[in-house]
Structures are given as structure tokens and as C-alpha cells.
Design a protein around this nucleic acid. Structure first.
Lengths: 144, 144
DNA sequence: CTTGAGTCTGTACCTAAGTACAGGGTATAA
DNA sequence: TTATACCCTGTACTTAGGTACAGACTCAAG
């Protein structure tokens, strides 16, 4: 049988690699639900650990806390189900676009690095703006 | 012959799709140099337009203004050359990692969308945490 | 030559996402 | 039983990246 609510706020924070204040902050923001208390102390479950880790991962790829909350709030209510599905597919599109942008940035930086790295030529052909301009040629999105 | 410094702050802002206050803010932060003035009005060049666009692009893929400044500050000085080259290759590594994370997030969200989308099964097998856990199995980085 | 749109400097304000006390209560190990 | 390492609530502060006035000046069209 799995034991539940075994984490104090400090051990939760450590397991998810964040500060204690951050957990309390998430609580205030309703990203974590209020856990059961004993003598005024909060006790968290394994699932809470997973949630906090997920939050950090999603933040890392550019989700805001409000967006993350929208995904987490979802629980069995089939009304919100469709909304969340919509959000999800929107996010999928957004992330695909972001990957493309990252790849183009990558190309430009690698080019810049090559141009700028050869110690012989002194800054000739080593222009950051040029490196990016060439990448932009194949991108829409700017100049709307 | 190219004509230079033909942009007022307002037309620069419009060309780069940002607000006038943002330009002044970048000025204060020394991301843009002080342009020549006539009767107290600033006049910007084509290059300034390219710079502001580059700033927005780099911000979009996660650069901070301070990082961006470090790249822009670079001009012919071969002392800073090596530093900038180092920064560049660091950034290349970072971006590659970020692409991998985005791809894994993408997979997880697509899975979630599929699981959650079939209107028949009611939230069974449609757990955001599970969808991400499976993705994490092939990732190091968490649990350090 | 007036009028309205654009610009100037300077300061103040805003949101997101924390981070840091202060002043107190609790738990556990020596 | 006392020390010390946690925990509590509440409030205030911080940083990044803008955004919004106020009060005055300038430029271009009619």
C-alpha cells in the first residue's frame, strides 16, 4: 500500500528542487491545493512532488504559472475537458513554432561562431546582424 | 548611396513593432546607442531597426536583455571577441538542450491531447502527470 | 500662424515570479 | 528540558521588462 502525505513543506521543496517560499507561493496562487495539516503543519503527498516538478518543467519551456494552472485545474469535469484539449492543441502549435525559431537561432549563432572564431580575419564577415538576417530570409512572422 | 538616420523614435518603434517607450527603455539600458539628435529629436538608422528586431527575436527564444547586450556590445575589439565566441558556443549548447526539452514537452502534450480527447473514455488514462512521467523516463536533469 | 501629432526628460507605476524577514509555534534528539 | 532545526502567518521587498503619465517643446499641414 502506498503511504500518503509524508512530506513536510521542506522535504517537498527539496524533492522538487525549489525553495520553501516558492511552495507557499504556489499555494497562494492555487497551483497546489491546500494539503492536510497536523498541528498546523502541512503534509504533502507524492503527487504534490510530481506536480511541482511538472510546474518547473513547463516553466522551463515557457509556460506561465497561469497557463500551468489551467492545465492542472483540470480534473474529470468534462465541461473543462474540451477547453483543456483546445489549450493543449494550441500549445502544441505554439511549441512547434518555437522549435522552428530555436533552430533558426541555432543556425545563426553557429554561423556567427564560425565567422567570428577564425582568429585570422579581424571582424570581417563577422557581423551578428548579418548572420541573423540570412536566417530571417526564410522566416515569415516579422514585418507583419 | 544609402541614407542614414532617417527614423524618428516613433517610426523606428513602428518598424520594429514595439512601443516608443520600449525604445527609450532600451536606450537607458544601453542596448541601443544614443543616436544623433537634431533640435533635441533622436534620429535612428536602418541598423537600429535591425538591432531592435534582433533583440525581439532573441528575447523570443529566451535571451535576457543583459545577455543580448553582451552580444551587441561586441564590435571589432578582439579582446571581447573570444569572450563573445565563448558565450555563443555556450548559448548553442543551451539552445540545443532547450530544443530537446521542447520536443519532449511536445510529445507529452500530444499524448495528453489524444488521451484526453476521445470523448468516450471519461478521464480514464487522461492524466497530465502520467503523460509527462513517461516522457521524463528518457530525460536526465531532474533529480540531480 | 495656429493646431494637432509627435517628441523631450523625468518620474512613477505595473506584472510575474519569486525571496526575505519578523515574531511566533512545534518536534525531536542529547 | 533545552537547544536547534523545522514550521506557521503576514507583510514587505526584489528583479526583469516594460508601460504610463506630466509638463514642456517641435514639426508639418492647412
Amino acid at each position: 500500500m502506498k503511504q500518503t502525505n509524508t512530506f513536510t513543506i521542506g522535504s517537498l521543496a527539496k524533492s522538487a528542487n525549489v525553495g520553501v517560499q516558492t511552495i507557499r507561493f504556489y499555494q497562494r496562487k492555487a497551483i497546489l491545493r491546500q494539503p492536510p495539516k497536523r498541528n498546523g503543519f502541512r503534509y504533502y503527498s507524492d503527487e504534490d512532488v510530481r506536480i511541482v516538478r511538472l510546474v518547473k518543467k513547463l516553466q522551463g519551456v515557457g509556460f506561465s504559472l497561469d497557463e500551468i494552472k489551467e492545465f492542472l485545474v483540470f480534473k474529470t469535469c468534462s465541461k473543462s475537458r474540451l477547453l483543456v484539449k483546445q489549450k493543449t492543441t494550441d500549445k502544441v502549435v505554439e511549441i512547434k513554432q518555437k522549435i522552428i525559431e530555436l533552430q533558426s537561432t541555432l543556425k545563426a549563432l553557429e554561423k556567427f561562431s564560425r565567422a567570428c572564431g577564425s582568429s585570422s580575419n579581424n571582424s570581417i564577415g563577422c557581423d551578428l546582424l548579418d548572420c541573423f538576417d540570412n536566417e530571417w530570409k526564410c522566416c515569415k512572422k516579422l514585418n507583419p
